[in-house]
Design a protein around this nucleic acid. Sequence first.
DNA 1: TCCTGATCTCTTGTCGACAAGAAAAATACA
DNA 2: TGTATTTTTCTTGTCGACAAGAGATCAGGA
Lengths: 234, 234
Amino acid sequence: MADSDPSQMGERRRGSGVKMVYDLLRDEIMNLELAPGSAVDEVQLASRFGMSRTPIREALVRLAAEGLIETLPNRSTMVSNIDFLNLPAYFDALVLMYRVTTRLAAQHHRGVDLGIIRAQQAEFSKAVQAQDALAMIATNAAFHSAIAAAGRNSYYSAFFERLLNDGRRMLRLYYQSYDDRLPPRFVEEHEEIIAAIEARDVAAADRLGKVHGEQIVEQIGRLLTRHEGIDIEL
Amino acid sequence: MADSDPSQMGERRRGSGVKMVYDLLRDEIMNLELAPGSAVDEVQLASRFGMSRTPIREALVRLAAEGLIETLPNRSTMVSNIDFLNLPAYFDALVLMYRVTTRLAAQHHRGVDLGIIRAQQAEFSKAVQAQDALAMIATNAAFHSAIAAAGRNSYYSAFFERLLNDGRRMLRLYYQSYDDRLPPRFVEEHEEIIAAIEARDVAAADRLGKVHGEQIVEQIGRLLTRHEGIDIEL
DNA sequence: TCCTGATCTCTTGTCGACAAGAAAAATACA
DNA sequence: TGTATTTTTCTTGTCGACAAGAGATCAGGA
């Protein structure tokens, strides 16, 4: 909330400014520190970061390309609202990508991948024990991102990553209202997923990915909407 | 190829410049009028479009966000190369999205959708008869985009659209070297797909989407790489 | 000839200033 | 008091200029 961050005010390397602004705003938006619908002012950001509007603008253009902010021509820029109308569609896509990425990881993972996945799972487990909702959401996403990376399909990875990021805001909203408790079952399910991947058991990976995804959908979606559930054989 | 387009040089509405540059460059890149690897110069574009570098830059940032151009820091900007290494991954994703979008269209399409889809199919058929490869690629993509839109899942639509756009460059390359002939079978398959959607036959839509996707993969992929083929039940 | 270092050139990255567009505020008028 | 119209204000969109980085070129020495 400080007007400016002194540690960032010194000499900056040319080109680093946009990335810094982009990363920071992205985090603030996804963690709901910047509320959906709240205004994003270029000059304000410029003075906050001690730079001109040009690099700020570039960061905003990138955020807009990802759908995280919206611009009203000539008028204003604001943080995108969370689209609850499309929630069933979102859940369909999410569950399918859970399945596909887990399945591909079982097929294509190599030596280093399991170590990375296990490290993310350790982080996730730690966050669950600490009841830290923000960390749970972030580490859960990182865990599944690592699995997607092991699947060696950059198209799926990119799409999945985007879905997870979109979901972070909704999940945050959910956990905010339910007091940060999350069933330890998720931790166990993660372990089962890891085992299936390690055993290269594609069918099990697929099934576990589906169950795990639907688990989360159940938790969040039941209250908000009737979920249809696509039933597709891969 | 003209240095500048006089019809576009008059008074422009504020904000329309970026869109125009973005759309045009996007088209030129996807139609291979701008070769992969070729340089993209900001000042050159600025003089070509009769505007300053700022709006050009914004358009380029957006193209970069979509992966259509790549930026070497402080040095240069160029049209992205086509990634032939990831072709199997690309085909997997493409076939899956063919299936998913066709299937969802069979489930969720409404009155207006079929008309739009049929219109696109008519365009496609016309392009095939005219042996116009560029038009075939574009109208085929539009046909499947229309189907995806009828499926009412914006996450899938956006992802699929992106895959189709990525594919346009590869397809163009392919047809360039094979003298623009394309089996009329594709037209028939499109008809079958429309019929399945209209009949709300989800299983048939799924199967036809898969077959149709694999058909295209076969045509293009066989020469370039061994295709693995994901076999997943939806 | 080949390596090393300085200089040059070319493109991008950043800046401050100004203009345009749209909403909000203020004013005029019945 | 209510409404139409003008003015103000606030934010974004665009511009031209300058600086920095990184390769390319060139000069000098072995």
